[in-house]
């Protein structure tokens, strides 16, 4: 009976509305099309996350493939089926850190010289991320330590909840909040001159 139900589930078409949870279960049952659907759904985010961590496109490409290969190999271990994305980004972060070990010029730890004063705020409606601002944005991210950057990206770019970030990074909730807070202040201090038209 269970086998029949599984077969029926397998024959259900995969659509954009099929939730991650269902795809994870089907992929765990050995349906490669379900895993490919998960790949297609998350590859852009994973690749961007890795490029932000590694700051090199070819390394990010390789790390992206390695991330999904590991995810496929370890998928049976995922019990929180609805938490595929945080789990996947956790793997991506580990892959990036392994790749980073061979690169010596990355920021491992940064000085905690975060500005304490209130930084003037931009007008969100006028923020246009043109090529120049994107360059400064990428630079601002690269100033952050890899761990802090990973936490900030998970929250701001990939929409993970603080609890999900804590689980993915193996940190306490308080640490996650503190790291993201500090990362934000640094990012803002770096970006402000470019957002308001001033130049440092």
């Amino acid at each position: 009976m269970t086998a029949v139900l599984q077969l029926l589930k397998r024959t259900q078409p995969i659509t954009p509305e099929t939730p991650d949870e269902a795809l994870v279960r089907r992929a765990q049952a050995g349906e490669s099309a379900a895993f490919k659907a998960l790949f297609e759904r998350h590859v852009v985010a994973v690749r961007r996350f890795l490029r932000d961590l590694l700051r090199q496109s070819d390394l990010a490409d390789d790390a992206t493939q390695e991330t999904f290969a590991r995810a496929h190999a370890q998928l049976v271990k995922l019990t929180d089926h609805d938490r595929f994305k945080p789990w996947l980004l956790g793997i991506a972060r580990n892959v990036a850190f392994e790749a980073r070990r061979v690169r010596q010029h990355d920021v491992l730890e940064e000085e905690d010289d975060v500005p304490d004063a209130v930084i003037p705020s931009p007008n969100p409606e006028s923020v246009l991320l043109d090529a120049e601002l994107e360059k400064h944005f990428t630079e601002a991210l690269s100033v952050l330590s890899a761990n802090r950057r990973a936490a900030l990206l998970m929250r701001l770019d990939h929409g993970l909840a603080y609890e999900e970030i804590a689980a993915a990074l193996g940190w306490s909730l308080a640490t996650v909040k503190n790291e993201i807070h500090r990362a934000r202040l640094k990012l803002r201090a770096h970006l402000l001159p470019h957002l308001t038209g001033e130049r440092p």
Binding site: R48, Q65, I119, S121, L195
Partner: peptide, 25 residues
Amino acid sequence: WLESETAMFRQRAGRDEVAHLWAGV
């Protein structure tokens, strides 16, 4: 600030070409 950050991240997203990566996976 929060809305500006969100806007920047959203504008940055979705510009990547990644289809070629499936073969490696």
